[in-house]
């Protein structure tokens, strides 16, 4: 009963906060609501016995990505931003599309059949600790995707520098 109460609180907070992120006019407010949203999502991960993912969520999203967003928001002309409408002419179309997506997929949810349970039960993870179990899997079975992820991050780093740097006079 307690767990259902917790879930309802987290789900309600996450939906309300994501609506606030999308509908606020001032981008700084959006970024700050998103910070709160990420903390709630990290709480939900703790609730799902994924403590490493909760830590990553706080460190990478709240600590890294949101600071990046806040930096770029500070470059913007907020006065002009507040005086102009926040939606483009595609607003109603976008709303209809999102609502249709929600209704269509939620109707198909009842026909979902879960796969047979794997070997990583909660007892096994508790016995082996979560990070160790995850790391074993990541460095053996998923070693090639892991290397590709490092390449993606390298490309992102170089690409961001090339895109954002000032053109040199030649």
């Amino acid at each position: 009963m307690v767990s259902i109460g917790f879930f309802i609180y987290f789900a309600f907070a996450i939906v309300v906060l994501s609506l606030l992120v999308v509908t606020r006019k001032n981008p700084v407010h959006s970024v700050l609501w998103m910070l709160l949203l990420f903390f709630h999502i990290a709480g939900l991960y703790l609730f799902l016995n994924a403590e490493f993912m909760a830590a990553i969520q706080v460190i990478v999203y709240a600590g890294g990505i949101l600071v990046l967003f806040l930096f770029v928001v500070l470059l913007m002309n907020l006065r002009e931003e507040l005086s102009i409408g926040k939606y483009t002419t595609f607003g109603p179309t976008g709303f209809t599309f999102a609502l249709g997506l929600f209704v269509a997929v939620s109707m198909s949810l009842s026909s979902f059949i879960a796969a047979p349970p794997g070997k990583y039960s909660i007892d096994l993870i508790k016995q082996e600790t979560h990070i160790k179990a995850l790391g074993k899997l990541l460095y053996t079975e998923f070693i090639y995707p892991f290397e590709v992820a490092s390449l993606i991050l390298l490309v992102a780093m170089i690409g961001a520098i090339v895109l954002a740097k000032r053109r040199l006079k030649s």
Binding site: V15, G94, A98
Partner: peptide, 26 residues
């Protein structure tokens, strides 16, 4: 699904490109 749909709505309808990127994160 609700969070994903809200993200889709934000991406399709907002005018500010930074909010659009935040919708992708959502």
């Amino acid at each position: 699904l609700a969070v994903f749909s809200i993200g889709v709505f934000g991406f399709l309808s907002r005018r500010n490109i930074i909010i659009m990127l935040m919708s992708i994160e959502l």
